[in-house]
Design a protein around this nucleic acid. Sequence first.
RNA 1: ACCCGAGUGGUGGAAUUGGUAGACACGCAGGACUUAAAAUCCUGUGGCUAGUAAUAGCUGUACGGGUUCAACUCCCGUCUCGGGUACCA
Length: 934
Amino acid sequence: MADYSKEEIKKIEEKWQQKWRQDGVYKVSNDPSKPKYYALDMFPYPSGAGLHVGHPLGYIATDIVARFKRVKGFNVLHPMGYDAFGLPAEQYAIEHGVHPAISTAKNIETFRKQLDRIGFCYDWSREVRTCDPKYYKWTQWIFLQLFDSWFNRSLQKAERIEQLIANFEKEGNKNHHFPNAKYRLPSGNSAFSASDWKSFDKKIQQEILMQYRLAYLAHTDVNWCEALGTVLANDEVINGVSYRGGHPVVKRQMRQWSLRITEYAERLLKGLKEVDFSESMKDIQRNWIGRSEGAKITFALKSEKAIVKNMMVFTTRPDTIFGVDFMVVAPEHDMVKDITSSSHKGEIDKYLSYVESRSEVDRMAEVKKITGCFTGAYAINPFNQREVPIWISEYVLAGYGTGAIMGVPCGDDRDHRFAKHFNIPITNIIGEHYNGKEANPTYEATLTNSEFLNGTKMKDAMKVVIDKLVEMGIGERQVNYKMRDAGWSRQRYWGEPFPVVFKDDMPYAMDEKDLPLELPDTNEFKSSGSGEGPLANLKDWINIGPHEKRDSNTMPTHAGAAWYFLRYMDPHNEKEFASKEALEYWNQVDVYVGGSEHAVAHLLYARLWTKVLHDLGYLNFDEPFKKLINQGKITGDSRFVYRIRGKNQFVSHGLINQYETDALHVDVNIVNGLELDTEQFKKWKPDFANVEFILENGKYICGSAIEKMSKSYFNVINPDHIIENYGADTLRMYEMFLGPLEQSKPWSTSGIDGVYKFLRKFWNLMHDAEGNLKLSDAEPTKEELKVLHKTLKKIEQDIDNFSFNTSVSEFMICINELNALKCNKRAVIEPLIIALSPFAPHMAEELWEKMGHSDTVLNATYHKVEEKYLVESSFEYPISINGKVRAKMNMALDMPKEDIQKQVLASEIVQKWTEGKAPKKVIIVPGKIVNVVL
RNA sequence: ACCCGAGUGGUGGAAUUGGUAGACACGCAGGACUUAAAAUCCUGUGGCUAGUAAUAGCUGUACGGGUUCAACUCCCGUCUCGGGUACCA
């Protein structure tokens, strides 16, 4: 005897959560006899603040999919774990003296409790934590695979360093140039022969190999954040300040580990064509990779000292070669000092020190500001021998292309502003397309002032120019990428140590059998101050022998997250990161759900690691995620109360213009819709114990605003609170009911009653007024079967489309219809319970058990949709006149068009509109609509 | 500035390949039950106009055009909001 009441819900949910755990119903084995399905949530960082209702949104979605696939007969992998390394725990340790391992473990425990209350079907036996040595042993191992590999450009795949050495011994590097075209050997050359290679000493050989390794050490410009005492990745810097904390960031040269992700730029781009990500997600990644096609052109150079004979530029517009009026070189460019004439040295030095004084923030804030300085040197246009001045300016970046550009003011906005600002004469090569006031970057113009190109369309000129450059031996087609190699060192404690040993300042991989290299225990987490991380303070650990040292840096959190989805497949394997069988069976992640904030960093690194492991023969797929869904953010819906200034009185929102009031945020948890629970308000804060209220219609109505969910706005909704009041099943369904998964939306509890009522109606369908089970074994009618199969069909379709809000609606419609039919037949309700189980697993289990089943509903089978119950013999046609619906007529679906037309035209309403005249046209779409055109 | 995505009642949102706009739910209004309230159930609910009413007509998917027998859906332009990028040659 039970009602679906608050007390009963609590009992049911606790009962099943316990039983699920006891029986291990979510434990999944690698069973190749069954088809597999892999549903994955993005790795959470277990923060101390716990979950708010925004977090589980995506988890609920994947949980529904996982449960649905299970009742559809799949073997479903649905794991969860923790991205447990990271800065917040380390900051907390510095501030509160609690070891990151301890605070992290505690946070995980809270997190887990909250997750469990929502009834997720995670196989916890597969849980991973990136900070667990058993896990990071393999993070370090994969890092060593990257260290031991290089990218063979002609094959477009990674190979072992061993293979590279074999190539060098055979033919030097003539077929495998240095990935960084600017790199020079101590001799000044960039090419070496087989005999050169053999003559190099070991250190130089290692230095050369380092230029090729996918994980390599180099002096690189890094984003140094003094306040955090660490280096930040490009994506951790926003507008020149740190993503976390907003501290200033400056450029600094440091010897850092990097991943040579740029070598994979093309494959990362191409791979996007195979995967099912949203267009916007693909766009973000494409923009980040930033591929551009163009040409590299060599210009001869005329300068006072004549040390430098020529310069190279990269341009996407070789067709504009006759419009070049000047050259601009990055201030940091090597050749600057050599080409500067003595008469310009003073100015150039002044400009260089100005550039050096400017921080990232300054530069970003003043993008529009035009600065620059003439060097006194000239470049010679190879086609007409015209001499153009060479300038330096900070708008040209040293790190992109060749660090030098050709200025074409009539076609490029920045070049135009530059030319105008410094009074450089502008050559117009696009005729009327250039108005003298602003640049026009068109491709459509017919070229003028362009000698042999005159009369040629710009689009077509592109190929002509490149061919000619190649012929003359002064240029070639080239593709450039915006993306840079990924900085992989962090000056932090709480991360994976690098599994290398420095001998003579050169890193060597640790032996695989010595992994993991465990993080040493310490209580000192502050950085060493010298720019090195906290590990540098642990001399005993850092210094292995007189000439042997460890790396004082640790890896970024992206490392552990770049491969965790593979570990879930075989989480306890101590011999490999995962067995070949497990990797082959579980294969790609079928659906991956998470926020779009991971678009560039995490997803690109995970895709990179997968590709490398694939190239090295460990995986038979090279894209990790088949389908990716970005859940929208849930924003907060704040509530305000209005205090009359100077009094201890609060006035309801509708009456505030009669008083002078101050708006105060009020905890949304004590407001129902817009109505304040005045009793709870008095208890909320001691200051409010004796307040008075001025009500409207007997109620206190609050004001509202949509803001981000934040503790300080008192608009954070903890899922525990919802579960307390309505139960986990209502929470799950309500979060889905809010709207499309991908869409951002404000949290508001105002509609939650509707979902709760639905569940109760479902319950009541098979109970009488006293709460006793009341089921009928009678044969269902045709109508009841139609309702059932219509619902089953829609639910299946919706889940396949990740459209969960509409499936919740469909369930509601179904229950409303069955209620109207007073249907309590087992043959109808049983399949519905199975269909509902992914959404409301606790209630479904309880009802399933009440129906007499001893096994969990998880092992039931989703009923097959029988189309035969859905076929209709007639259709209620909307009859429109000139496109406007004027009437409805029920007609058989197999009625011939002529008969339909006859009936429609004969009808009274149509007669009224036609007024006896013959219509111009009658359009009949069988099963859809009839339109009479007058 | 550039590149994406979105804009539908008082609210969240629905609408297969162009084919009945507003499903479902909240809120609101009225009614039933109750001494009363809560809870529950039933009915109505985009706006405007006419009518006691059933109903009829007009209007309506950010705005202005267009294509079509038919447009929330396709095309062109404008505005607003959200996301991404930040001098990438």
